[in-house]
Design a protein around this nucleic acid. Structure first.
Lengths: 218, 218
DNA sequence: AAATGCAAAGTTGCATGCACAATCCCCATC
DNA sequence: GATGGGGATTGTGCATGCAACTTTGCATTT
């Protein structure tokens, strides 16, 4: 078994965080300290410390003397989160246009080209996987850990709501075309262009999500 | 007086946070749980919970079984933070151009005009105070709590390093001119222009800081 | 004199217990 | 039947204590 160099508090915080992010712990559900302590085989102390950590990062709400609940994201807050995500992604693209190394630029170009082939043969699964890598490249390429960490945290937070972006018909080809605009601007060092192109791209992703949401909500 | 409903943990977290942000607790200093508990007249439990909260927000570093230390910001990290701050301020300006209500736009215009008078009579104190309000208007005007909270948190984090921006000669007039470009773009609904103008403005602020830093570092 | 090993002191991680606040539930009252 | 009040209950906030790990200083060895 893995030697637990990490403390119980840390393990608890990590476990609870993923449970919340992947939906196992539903929004609005109450987090009873006794129950969690028993379920994880510890005392209440590490549970309390983990909860405080989660509260600071916004995953749960900690009401003094009234316990903790998993944060409910209303559709308005979700909208706000998506807008923020879009702005941060655009910022990453902008900074990437300014800061990417030649090697990073070459890799970006290569990935984009290979995604073109996936588009041509309609390989949604491969494209979806590569899409994550594509966006991740800009987080790293921004060469600014503060911005990239904010963006990554937001992306993780929104992951449960971003499932099926490419199911919408014709979305694959359009996505690739939009990627092309971003890549062209970044490779050309056009900061403003990269910003605008990425913003355009992620706004459309958001719209695609919106439509799917409404469809499945019927 | 503020309602004393907050728990000891919360009070401790708030106190320690301001102590760190205003420099009372120097970067790198060790935070002994016993010492803090005694100093604040509590037991170690709330201290530990407060420390975990501060660690999550990045103000301290919590090394398992080895205690907590106030985070050391290197000059490179400071640079990164300033760049991130600039990008977020620009984003706020961009969103403000899109989202500000007519009333907000009118207030912004009025403040800018009154700051023109302060510039004319060289009132650095009044200008400095109004400058905070000026920037705060964009945080609110963005109408996106996720972005604005990120920006406000960063601003607070950088506050200790932003003291004397307007001491540099001629800075007041230049600042006001740059503000003018931002205001013009926002009032005209020019999102890209607002973004660019604010970015230009805060980059120069950063430079001004940089110069002062070097001068005082001799 | 430098390096290594060891023991003691100091600190953190976690469990347990108690007090008080919030909530619930029952019953009396309107 | 709805409403309000007063315990009983549940659960959180905090203090204390113990065990385990880290660090420090000293003694021993090379």
């Amino acid at each position: 078994m893995a030697d637990e160099r990490q403390t119980r508090t840390e393990k608890l915080a990590a476990d609870l965080a993923s449970a919340i992010l992947d939906g196992t712990l539903e929004p609005g559900s109450r987090l009873d300290e006794h129950m969690l302590a028993e379920r994880y085989g510890t005392s209440r102390t590490p549970v309390r410390e983990a909860l405080r950590q989660l509260a600071t990062s916004g995953l749960i709400e900690l009401r003094p003397r009234r316990g903790a609940v998993v944060t409910q994201v209303t559709s308005e807050q979700l909208d706000t989160l998506f807008v923020a995500m879009g702005e941060l992604e655009a910022t990453c693209a902008r900074l990437s246009a300014l800061s990417m190394t030649p090697i990073e630029r070459r890799r970006l170009d290569a990935l984009h080209e290979s995604m073109g082939e996936m588009t041509a043969r309609g390989d949604v699964a491969a494209y979806t996987a590569s899409n994550t890598v594509f966006h991740t490249m800009f987080y790293a390429g921004a060469h600014n850990v503060v911005v990239s960490e904010m963006t990554i945290a937001l992306r993780r937070r929104l992951a449960p709501f971003r499932q099926a972006q490419f199911r919408a018909p014709g979305r694959l080809a359009r996505s690739h075309a939009e990627h092309g605009a971003v890549v062209k601007a970044v490779l050309g060092g056009d900061a403003a262009g990269a910003h605008a192109a990425m913003l355009h791209h992620v706004s459309l992703v958001e719209d695609a999500f919106d439509q799917l949401q409404r469809i499945s909500a019927v």
